[in-house]
Design a protein around this nucleic acid. Structure first.
Length: 589
RNA sequence: GCGCUUGUAGCUCAGCUGGAUAGAGCAGUGGACUUCGAAUCCAAAGGUCGCAGGUUCAAAUCCUGCCAGGCGCACCA
């Protein structure tokens, strides 16, 4: 058990004692299962152990077991009282002892870091955009999930390689290229448009052509053939086609980079499908040679899947060319070679590809690769009117959304008059950006990845209640309190003080101790939402406490120092948690 | 049709490795700023946990069936 995991240690010590008594009293031999819970009300205790599971081993009624254990277990430094409450055995922590354990832990710079993934190297592939249109809110969900997960994995001790597999080739790119060649938009410009000449972000410019293509293709079905011809020319390596392709991809990727930087997304490695799309063929041919695949009449290579409901999967076309799954076979093997020894590879990809990944993993296993593979699936974001469609212009553009949120935040900031618009323009900018992003990131990360999100701009974009800005506000309030303490009465926060902690304070101490386990759960479940909920609850408890309890105006100086210490500890954990989510902990807003 | 997935308060969602009266936020109602930031706090109100069976001492949680939404079912990606 990790020494930093206070809750874990508490549980472990209780478990040991309970086991001992149950064996001594009833001769219980079997493996006893322990189910710890947090009692519904603090007045019942701080930690509860349900005694139902012991009934079989002891042949006693759960309330009886609880009573007996309550008598047998000696209170110690950590446990002030142990009481039976029906079938539960409830433990009351000694707040002073708790404080003396919690404070030094919480203020360590690496509090929350665990050794769960120590020595393990994992690749996390996320984002993986197409280079024919700008990023929209759906990509936003992917990017935010990916970044949050990579940071969570890192705090758990994993070495994380963040990879982006860019889909930079194929018919969709050729559509934009065709529209560009034919100038279906920006026809009025004397020269072919560029991001410079139009003042447009590169991804937006290319996106305009993609939309133009779609419009045109509805009027004139022959353009599809032209796009297909362009793709063939690309594969043949026609210089002028390649040049245009490079040019347009370059614009798009430069545009993406701006958005990535803005969101705080980073990558250690880019893979480009233009370089990998033919890979995997050798792997399939080799497997065929080993008798692991079948051959279709026209020469295509296929496999039967475990699930009899699934049709047989083609791995190589009759003409010998690669398919989507073929290249994924190839790139996955390549990833494990590039970063050998690699323990795991996670793919953050939307749930429309659930089946694809199931198949991919199955086939790799069939071919003898024992990779640790995991698909991190997430639901679509839809609008109240329905699905987002880039072609029909019903998308929520990510850059635009961030701008809009920033603007809304700026209005709120100005209304509060915390900054002087004349002299503090840059601070206002920075803060507005942080609040806007805080709102979006928390909104997206708080709900389970499997769930679809209906994004209603009017209702979703809020800065009140269970939102990012609420957490940021809590952090800002604590910051200004601590700043005030340092100047006005000039008090230092003191830790490990044996103050007479009240119920609210004990609750906060417990919550701080719980952070460690929350992170572990977030990592193992690949669920940043657990961290979101925890942080929100922490802030709720703090805000209530803060409202009820004077800190700087507490009765004695000792009490002022102790309470300041507690505030400092809450601030520290809150800031750490927010950073993991990619949300800026603000000191003023 | 088959597979995966979701269905909890008017709305958005926690809880779902079974356990003490099902929790938040938003909206609506009432209240708290001459006290450390009211982007806050408090109170009341709001629920057949999609429906029906089953397993269990105990089911929102596990199993089965049904209903509804989403996604997928190409020698597309």
């Amino acid at each position: 058990m990790d020494r930093d995991n206070l809750f874990g240690l508490f549980k472990e010590s209780i478990q040991g004692q309970v086991e001992h008594h149950l064996k001594a009293e009833f001769g219980a031999q079997e493996n006893l299962t322990f189910k710890f819970e947090i009692p519904p009300e603090p007045s019942l205790g701080h930690l509860a152990l349900a005694c139902f599971p012991f009934a079989k081993a002891t042949k006693q009624a759960p309330p009886k077991i609880a009573q007996l254990l309550a008598q047998k277990i000696e209170p110690n430094r950590a446990w002030e009282r142990v009481v039976a409450s029906g079938p539960y055995l409830n433990f009351f922590l000694n707040p002073k002892e708790l404080a003396s354990l919690v404070f030094p832990q919480v203020l360590k710079p690496d509090y929350g870091c665990s050794s769960l993934g120590k020595g393990q190297k994992v690749m996390l592939e996320y984002s993986s955009p197409n280079t024919n249109k700008p990023l929209h809110l759906g990509h936003g969900r992917n990017n935010l999930l990916g970044m949050a997960l990579s940071r969570l994995l890192e705090t758990a001790g994993y070495q994380v390689i963040k990879a982006n597999l860019v889909n930079d080739r194929g018919i969709h790119i050729c559509k934009s290229m065709l529209a560009y060649q034919e100038r279906w938009v920006y026809a009025e410009l004397p020269l072919p448009p560029t991001p410079q000449s139009t003042g447009k972000k590169g991804d937006k410019l290319v996106g305009d052509f993609y939309v133009a293509y779609d419009k045109k293709s509805k009027e004139d079905p022959t353009v599809a053939d032209q796009a297909a011809q362009l793709l063939r020319d690309w594969e043949l390596g026609k210089p002028e086609v390649l040049a245009l392709w490079r040019q347009m991809n370059d614009w798009v990727l430069k545009g993406f980079e701006v958005t990535y930087q803005r969101l705080g997304c980073e990558f250690d490695r880019f893979y480009f499908e233009s370089k990998t799309y033919q890979s995997g063929r050798e792997i399939v041919l080799k497997a065929f040679g080993q008798g692991l695949c079948g051959k279709e009449d026209n020469g295509a290579i296929s496999v039967e899947l475990d699930d009899p409901n699934q049709p047989k999967k083609i791995l190589l076309r009759g003409d010998g060319t690669s398919m989507y799954i073929t290249q994924d076979l190839g790139t996955t093997v390549q990833k494990f070679q590039d970063y050998a020894p690699l323990d795991r590879c996670l793919f953050v990809v939307g749930n429309e590809q659930d089946q694809h990944f199931k198949t991919l993993f199955e086939v790799l296993g069939r071919f003898g690769y024992s990779f640790g593979l995991e698909h991190i699936s997430y639901g679509m974001i839809t609008l109240p009117e329905g699905k987002m469609k880039s072609r029909e212009g019903t998308v929520v553009d990510l850059d635009d959304l961030l701008d809009e949120l920033k603007g809304m935040a700026a209005e709120e900031i100005l209304a509060r008059e915390m900054f002087d618009p004349q002299t503090q323009g840059p601070q206002i900018e920075f803060t507005a950006e942080a609040i806007g992003q805080g709102a979006l990131k928390f909104l997206i990360l708080k709900s389970g990845a499997a769930k679809e999100i209906t994004f209603n701009p009017k209702e979703s974009l809020s800065f009140e209640g269970a939102t990012g800005p609420y957490l940021q506000y809590t952090h800002a309030r604590i910051s200004s309190l601590l700043a005030k303490a340092a100047t006005e009465p000039a008090v230092e926060p003191k830790l490990e003080i044996g103050a007479d902690w009240n119920e609210g304070e004990t609750g906060l101490l417990l919550a701080l101790a719980k952070y460690y386990e929350v992170l572990l759960a977030s990592v193992t479940d690949r669920n940043p939402g657990a961290l979101c909920n925890y942080l929100f609850e922490l802030c709720r408890s703090f805000n209530k406490y803060y409202y009820d309890t004077p800190v700087l105006k507490a009765e004695t100086r000792t009490l002022v120092e102790a309470r300041l210490g507690l505030c400092l500890a809450v601030q520290a954990v809150l800031a750490k948690g927010l950073r993991l989510l990619g949300i800026e902990p603000l000191t003023k807003m």
